[in-house]
Every structure is written in C-alpha cells, then in structure tokens.
Design a protein around this nucleic acid. Structure first.
Length: 269
DNA sequence: GATGACCTGTGA
DNA sequence: TCACAGGTCATC
C-alpha cells in the first residue's frame, strides 16, 4: 500500500490531461473492465480529474466533457488500478522512484499490460510481469474497509468484531481494513508484540491500543523510509535463522492464513 | 472462516 | 528443476 501511495503521487502529473488512446495488450489484465474495445470506448475522450487511493486500490477520477452528458448515465467515472505485488506505473517514460522487493526493475515491453496516451502528450504505462494486477471500471470502493492510513483506535473494535480468526487474517482482510499486505502485517504485529496466530477476539483493550498505535506509527515511518520492505522486520530478515532486532531471539517462520509469516516467539504473544 | 488456485519471475 | 513470493478470487 505504501508503494501505491508513491505511485499515486507519481501519477498526479496526469491530472488535467485528456485520454487520446488506450491500448490493452493483455486482455487478462483488464478482464474486470471488459474487452479492450469496451475499455477504449469508456476512456477515450475522458479527462483525468483526480487521482486517489483507498488501500491498495488506485482510483483515477475521470470526466467526459466532450459528451456533454452528466454523471450517472452509464459513463464510468472512475478507473481503478490494482498493482498486485509486481505491478508498477511508468509516467511519461519516467521509471518508478524505487525498486520492488520481489520484482525486477527491468523494463520489458512484453510486461506492459495497459497503455494510455494523452492528447496533451505523454503516456501512462503499467508494467506487471506476474500479471497479478488489474484494471477495473467503477470499482466498488464500498467493499473495502477503512483505509489503514486513516485508522484510529475507535476503528479497531469494529475491524476485529467477534472474529475468532487469527488476527493476521483479520488484518489482511481488505473488506475489514484496506491496505495492509503480508509484510506490513508482520511488521505491525511485531511492533505491537502480538502473536499473528492469536484469535482476534481475544485481544485485550491494551493490545488493541498497541495494535492501533503500531499501524499509525508504521505506515508514515516506512513510507518515509521508502517502502513496505524497509521495516524493522525487513525483507532481509525474512530468511531462515534470522534474529529479532529487538531481543535477539531466532525468528520463527510459520504459516498463518495461508501466508508465510515471520514472528518473534520471545516478545510476540 | 479456511483453503487452495491463479499468475510467472526469481533464486537456490 | 522447482519451491516460493503475495493479492485476489473461487470453492468448500
């Protein structure tokens, strides 16, 4: 999600431009939006009005000044972009501002899944080697939970509810809280001193406060450092026999919610 | 709520 | 050669 916020800021240059041409070399990548012809029909002639983010979903607000029609008559108002793990945008041929942890920084033409050219010049290209991302028209933002960046202490009880699932699974559930991925959740739970496999509903009031503060502290801090992989429990420690930077214990590698999980058996309980 | 499939580049 | 990465979705 931190990466998506970088992308959002990078793409702010597109605001005000009018879409002249759309290419969808990979129909798989736009499957949610229909066929390449559907997408072209929906986007060409539209103007980029704003670029927002909710969780991991990037939202491009568009208007259709040339048609003279008002909203609500069927024209899409939002283009949604999901980047998955390996997707990244290139704006006007500028490379993304940083490297991804699990993806090559190379630019292969065959990795371009989505390509938009603008009347005023320049273009937006989405590269996604592993094809985990997707484009979507008018995505249902209401299906997503509160944005993790905006989370407050009062949100936590609603997020956890009466869930008996592992707290890690709950935090990864985008419909409860949007924006936390596998590595960020591990980092947050490590900071809060909470075992990822703990049943969510069993968290005490103090633990819920610690969890909230961990989320609120971690996101701005790691954003400033440059990405999700640069936490105190960084990607470089997600290896066998790595030790906890807090107490020196050997980190445990487990599976929680179907995801590889690193945690400290000494201080996460 | 839990599990596995899906996508494919990467590194052992 | 093959396990693994993780966000999302289908299925139980």
């Amino acid at each position: 999600m931190l990466e998506i916020e970088y992308y959002r800021r990078e793409m702010l240059d597109l605001v005000g431009r009018t879409i002249d041409h759309v290419e969808c070399p990979d129909p798989w990548w736009i499957r949610r939006a229909g066929t390449p012809a559907d997408v072209a029909r929906a986007l060409v002639g539209a103007q980029v009005v704003a670029i927002r983010r909710h969780g991991k979903l990037l939202l491009i607000d568009i208007s259709h000044p040339s048609t003279g029609r008002s909203a609500g008559d069927g024209d899409p108002e939002v283009l949604g972009l999901r980047f998955g793990m390996t997707g990244r945008p290139m704006v006007d041929d500028r490379p993304p501002p940083f490297a991804l942890e699990y993806a090559s920084s190379a630019v292969h033409e065959e990795w371009v899944r989505f390509h938009v050219e603008f009347v005023e010049g320049g273009q937006l290209r989405i590269l996604d080697p592993r094809r985990l991302g997707a484009a979507e028209l008018d995505p249902d933002v209401s299906a997503l939970g509160v944005d993790a960046w905006e989370i407050g202490r009062s949100d936590i009880d609603g997020i956890i509810g009466t869930s008996s699932a592992a707290i890690k699974s709950v935090l990864l559930d985008q419909s409860r809280v949007a924006g936390l991925g596998n590595m960020l959740v591990d980092e947050v739970l490590w900071r809060a001193g909470i075992d990822p496999s703990r049943r969510a509903g069993t968290l005490s009031t103090a633990e819920r406060s610690a969890l909230t503060e961990a989320v609120r502290g971690t996101l701005p801090e790691l954003f400033a450092r440059g990405g999700s992989h640069l936490g105190d429990l960084p990607a470089s420690r997600r290896v066998v026999d790595a030790t906890c930077p807090r107490d020196g214990a050997v980190l445990r590698r487990t599976t929680v919610g179907g995801r590889t999980t690193y945690m400290c058996p000494e201080h996460q309980r």
